[in-house]
Design a protein around this nucleic acid. Structure first.
Lengths: 132, 132, 132, 132
DNA sequence: GTGGTCTAGACCACT
DNA sequence: GTGGTCTAGACCACT
């Protein structure tokens, strides 16, 4: 799994790892059931502290996106994106989406362009397309 | 201007203020040219320190969303959302949107529902609709 | 005298007035001995408080750039830009110039471009050209 | 890094710190990639509050001149002064330069002396000389 | 009356 | 150990 960090960003590294993994799953680069690199391996690859990778994986586990076991390490949950989403998580997501959309509107991005950009992004995601 | 904070949220208070103001502008509750409460006043209303409000207003100013002067306090920029958006800001926005969309996809929100929710949110925004 | 203010700027209005007057003198739009508008007139033209204009004029007077008398109001000093500059003022000016140049260099403006831009600016100034 | 403040100056302390750091980078005393003192350390050295240093560093970060991380503290961006300067920033810079030059002209500094002083200042800057 | 700056100290987040 | 956030209060600058 290739994964690019932006050390200049104000976003914490563990959050960036979490975000990139989520994107990789959405894009289909990380299939359901696939293994993530070991925390130590990824830490070496990214030249960061292994506790930071640990924190990212733990976050993904708590979000129900991956499973972690001593035997098989971290794997993408086979049912990720299958069952209905948790109402609580969806409500929270919707609030964040609202803020993000409001920002674009206030910045003067035309609605058509906005919807287009969202469509393009969604088209890049192979998971959950309904034809799976 | 009514504005609700979540003190339990991990999002800093100043960021929440910024987000709520942006939403209020997008919704049309805060019109272009309208005054925001003074930093001290809003601090009293929200039962927080005025420096925190200051930081939020300063952030909005640097984003080009409000104008601040010692004379007239903070006002929504009359040209907010008028001119074309800055490419840099739009690129940054798109990255954040991608991450957010990926999360929804991975959580199993169907695409139709996703697009619907976005449409509903956009319909709640009065600004920049083109027919104004 | 036409004079444009930027109310969005963080620079105080009195400082902007002072700066614009200095530029007008350098450009030759305000000749040595010429009268400035009365403080009340300028305040009306700029839609600002007349105390603010007063403060700007007082600053120009203290800098030795204009003379103020009850009889003839504010006039550009006839000897502005004639005699040798005050060493103290020049030293102070040089420090500010150093900071400004350092900023351009750090931002990556090539030296040739830097010198060119300065030359162009100086060419727009009619006063003190030596051929007067 | 040695750095001298003028507590009597009307320029805010955080701005002075920012200006001195920019000069140190232009002079080559602070190389690309070099570390700045920690906010707390510099505050002790300058006998000021660490929040003031924080504000200066935050300003430098927003200007894209330094990078800040909790791990390695503040470092001069390796690419500072490398890529082409932002047009917006250059336009703003040019306006300030115009005002500064006008002031010198009005004060009676001869053009030759003016250009000489600028050349001398630029010669003191090791960064971006093209022959490096 | 408004925002801006500075000091001071507490506590937290990240690595 | 580093920076980030928040509170608190004083004083100043601008209009």
């Amino acid at each position: 799994m290739h994964l690019i960090l932006d050390l200049d960003s104000e976003a914490p590294i563990y959050q960036q790892i979490r975000d990139r993994v989520v994107e990789a799953i959405a894009e289909g680069r990380l299939a359901a059931g696939a293994s993530l690199p070991s925390t130590r391996q990824l830490a070496v690859d990214l030249a960061i502290n292994f506790h930071t990778v640990n924190k990212a994986y733990d976050l993904l586990r708590r979000e129900g996106i991956i499973r972690i076991s001593r035997k098989s390490g971290a794997v993408v949950r086979p049912d990720a994106g299958q069952g209905p989403a948790e109402p609580q998580a969806v409500a929270d997501w919707e609030r964040r989406a609202r803020t993000l959309l409001a920002e674009a509107v206030v910045r003067g991005v035309p609605r058509e362009e906005l919807v287009d950009r969202i469509r393009v992004a969604l088209d890049g995601f192979g998971v959950g397309r309904g034809d799976t």
